[in-house]
């Protein structure tokens, strides 16, 4: 059954339980980080950081907002990275769940091309030339469990299930949020399995939050 996420950023409190749960499940080491002058760390995805809560201040209509965006691979329905690689030993899409999975064969791909073709600037290269990103916890999902990040989230910002159910949840929540936030939208909801709801225009959260900029009608 085709799976998906609905990520409601209006419920995110940037607790980063998702960030740490991902590290714990995937046994990823901590990076040596430096405070860049804000509360977000690490500052970007890396070979050992697949899930990252982006924290951005924005002044909208004269009011200060602190916007949180728990970023991850979108597991696109038609993944540009997969198409570009043309090597299903390296990048393949799980027929059941739809997860876009990278293997150690990614060492044979040209990393900057794979990263460049991703609308969301997600995959990252390790020292040994391998590429890595969120796995959709495919191992957990195929054993009837939800992804580690979703399980850890206390507020219901992260939701996971059958893609149809997630889309329905997203639409319902969008209608509710739009009542107070007219610029609320679902990001690229037809193209991705990880559907984000933002209260304000996506660029306020992160430059790569959306591939399709609805306002200016352009795609990255």
């Amino acid at each position: 059954m085709s799976k998906g996420f609905f990520i409601d950023t209006t419920r995110c409190i940037a607790c980063k339980a998702c960030q740490v749960a991902c590290k714990q499940w995937n046994r990823l080491p901590a990076e040596k980080t430096v405070n860049q002058g804000n509360l977000q760390n690490p500052s970007d995805f890396s070979f050992t950081t697949y899930k990252l809560v982006r924290m951005n201040e924005a002044i909208i209509d004269g009011k200060v907002h602190w916007l949180f965006f728990p970023d991850q691979c979108r597991h696109c329905r038609v993944p540009p990275c997969l198409l570009w690689a043309q090597n299903t030993d390296a990048i393949y899409q799980d027929k059941d769940t739809g997860a876009v999975v990278y293997t150690s064969e990614t060492q044979h791909l040209k990393a900057e091309d794979i990263i460049g073709v991703c609308p969301y600037n997600v995959p990252r290269r390790g020292k040994d030339g391998l590429l890595a990103k969120c796995t959709m916890c495919n191992d957990r999902v195929k054993n009837g469990m939800e992804p580690a990040c979703v399980k850890a989230c206390p507020t219901g910002a992260l939701n996971f299930g059958d893609l149809q159910a997630m889309r329905a949840m997203a639409s319902e929540r969008l209608a509710a949020v739009k009542q107070t936030c007219p610029d609320a939208s679902l990001l690229d909801s037809n193209d991705v399995r990880v559907i984000y709801l933002t209260a304000f225009v996506p660029q306020k959260y992160h430059n790569y939050a959306a591939a399709f900029d609805a306002k200016h009608r352009r795609t990255r």
Binding site: V20, K32, N41
Partner: peptide
């Protein structure tokens, strides 16, 4: 704990 220190490495 490294995972915690990664999140907030410095006093600010």
């Amino acid at each position: 704990v490294p995972w915690n220190l990664e999140l907030q490495p410095h006093v600010f």
